[in-house]
């Protein structure tokens, strides 16, 4: 009774709780929130003092690596799963409030959260409890590749195999889907963060210079590539020279970044190849005919489709608006739940 009453004041939300970014899709409104999953925590008066949230989202991300002693900017999710339960709950609470228009009533929406397909029961339960603690009236969980495939507009309900590769911040998931179900899925803990890390390591090794997470990400966005292209692009970055101990500026080019990214990229390619190996032959031929669909922020890495195409010999296409595929797919799944009561793609 109360649940239904509360429902009047709340919208249904689909949340892509990602390692790097959290996206919220509201039925009928589209993507209403796209913010980094970063929380800055202020702890005054020493180590035992009261802790409070100083900033969440974009604001907090600007603080990453730039905080004084009493503020720590952390990412509460690591590799697709919750690393800090309390902070995740607070972050979700903040985001849910932010997208909730009605300021009078406490939001208590039905929430669908996407979880990596490799996540354990414990990790799923943590996400469920965390969303519940953040004010959700009901929590549904859906596996990320399923949501990504729905969001990318793949014909998941047909008796035809579709392969989707979702490269997120913390994990990459590859799955073969047919008849509304996942035939094969695998998750590797490689994603955008690993790319950044690889760039940082490369720069330290080859230039003897330390750069921060944010700088590495900027380098990746601007000149990162997965396949050698025709043009070589350059970027000037500043970092702390380890030998001299002072900030120095230097120039990186796209070939160097390509080299730096080899290791994480080969991990992803390996996962795709394994998936193709494990896929039943009938579905494999469907995949070979239409190709692999890339979603997630990682799909925006330049020429990643090209790399996969060359490595697998299959057509590879990047979905439209790959960053929001999962959240949109989750929203569509919520609609299906509401309209038809079909919850076959949900997980416990």
């Amino acid at each position: 009774m109360f649940k239904r009453l509360w429902g009047i004041f709340s919208n249904d939300l689909s949340i892509d709780l990602g390692t790097a970014n959290t996206l919220i899709y509201v039925r009928g409104q589209g993507i209403v929130l796209n913010e980094p999953s970063v929380v800055a925590i202020r702890q005054d008066r020493g180590p035992g003092g009261p802790r409070a949230i100083a900033a969440v989202g974009i604001e907090a991300k600007r603080m990453l690596g730039r905080t004084p002693g009493n503020i720590t900017a952390i990412r509460p999710l690591k590799e697709g799963v919750i690393a800090d339960f309390t902070v995740t709950e607070k972050m979700l609470q903040y985001f849910i409030r932010k997208v909730h228009e009605n300021k009078v009533f406490r939001p208590s929406p039905r929430v669908l959260v996407c979880v990596p397909c490799g996540s354990t029961q414990v990790e799923r339960r943590a996400i469920r409890e965390s969303a519940g603690g953040a004010g959700a009236r009901e929590v549904y969980l859906i596996e990320e590749p399923m949501a990504a495939a729905i969001g990318a507009g793949l014909p998941v309900d047909e008796a035809r195999g579709s392969m989707v590769l979702d490269i997120g911040g913390g994990t990459s998931e590859v799955a073969v889907i047919s008849l509304n179900g996942i035939v094969y899925s695998a998750s590797v803990r490689i994603g955008g963060d690993k790319f950044d890390e690889a760039i940082t390591n490369y720069v330290r090794r080859n230039y003897g210079t330390l750069i921060g997470e944010a700088t590495a990400e900027r380098v990746k966005h601007e000149i990162g590539a997965a396949f050698p292209g025709n043009e070589v692009r350059e970027i000037e970055v500043k970092g702390r020279n380890l030998a001299e101990g002072v900030p120095r500026s230097f120039t990186l080019n796209s070939n160097e970044i390509l080299e730096a990214l080899q290791e994480p990229l080969s991990g992803i390619v390996g996962a795709v190849k394994t998936a193709l190996e494990q896929t039943p032959p009938e579905l494999g031929s469907d995949v070979a005919e239409r190709g692999i669909v890339l979603t997630g922020g990682g799909a925006l890495l330049r020429d990643l489709d090209r790399l996969l195409m060359e490595e697998t010999g299959l057509p590879v296409v990047v979905a439209e608006d790959p960053l929001t595929c999962v959240a949109r797919g989750g929203g569509r799944a919520l609609e299906l739940i509401t309209e038809h009561g079909s919850d076959f793609f949900l997980v416990d």
């Binding site: 409104q29 589209g30 209403v32 009261p50 409070a52 949230i53 969440v56 607070k90 409030r97 300021k103």
Partner: peptide, 12 residues
Amino acid sequence: TAPAPSPAQVGL
């Protein structure tokens, strides 16, 4: 769509 900003401070 961009949502309106909301109060930031959430106690821990």
